[in-house]
């Protein structure tokens, strides 16, 4: 796999090693769905981790009990019911979740974890509105199984807004949103572009954003917005 280099660590591409030795995590008391087997190693620092009951149905956030702390990545493991226990990060925060095989990443992030920036527009991989960064790549969460993000670093538009305010500013200044439903998908994709290419040309911007549909037709103004963001980011913002 050809890893893309990035200078800024905060977005998406913290190295595997850094990930592993990152602050220890806490396993939620999700024994109701059979995760006791997870509490494999203990000790070290503590950190609050959100877990949710993952059976189909109303998602209930389980109050995390600080019991077991592991420093290592929880190994990908399968419960007796065929669910997966996955350990991943969203916007820098670590989560351990139990997911169904048929659960999309979109469902996990949007419905269970509350990242509302991830929109359903086509739900078949044809619009870019559900984009998230996974290890730096702009990926469609509606066409990604939740179980596949184990060990990965995810960034959503909410997180990017915190990390790259200059991008948000440029988008607002250029009025790149009308109804605004597709805009977070553009933000995610533009962030991926800017991380790979700090000075993109018009054509490079158009190509990079070519997978994002906007029914309001805001396309023309994304080009100056991304250029302005690139300039501001290079200026240290």
């Amino acid at each position: 796999m050809t890893e893309k280099k990035n200078k800024k660590k905060s977005l998406g591409e913290i190295s595997r090693r850094e990930f592993l030795i990152d602050a220890g995590i806490v396993l939620g008391s999700t024994a109701a769905v059979g995760t006791a087997a997870l509490a494999s190693s203990c000790g070290g620092k503590t950190e609050t981790v959100t877990s949710t009951v993952t059976k189909d149905g109303p998602s209930k956030t389980v109050t995390t009990t600080v019991t077991d702390v592991v420093e290592k990545l929880v190994p990908l493991s399968c419960t007796e019911d065929g669910q997966w226990v996955i350990d991943f990060k969203v916007n820098g925060k670590r989560f351990v979740e139990i997911v169904e095989p048929n659960e999309t990443l979109h469902h996990l992030l949007h419905e269970k974890l509350g990242f509302k920036s991830i929109k359903t527009f086509c739900s078949r991989g044809g619009c870019g509105s559900c984009s998230v960064l996974i290890d730096g790549r702009p990926i469609l969460s509606c066409m990604t199984f939740a179980s596949s993000v184990h060990g990965k670093e995810i960034w959503t538009a909410e997180g990017i807004a915190t990390e790259m305010p200059a991008l948000i500013d440029a988008y607002v200044d250029n009025e790149c949103m009308q109804c605004g439903y597709c805009t977070p998908g553009f933000i995610v994709t533009a962030a991926a572009l800017l991380k790979r290419n700090s000075d993109p040309t018009t054509d490079e911007i158009r190509e990079a954003l070519a997978g994002n549909l906007c029914r309001c037709g805001t396309y023309p103004v994304h080009i100056p917005a991304v250029k302005e963001a690139a300039k501001a980011l290079k200026g240290g913002r």
Binding site: G125, G126, S131, P138, L140, M143, T189, A208, A210, G211
Partner: peptide, 9 residues
Amino acid sequence: TASPHLRES
């Protein structure tokens, strides 16, 4: 092929 996002996956 397809779109930038689909090419990533």
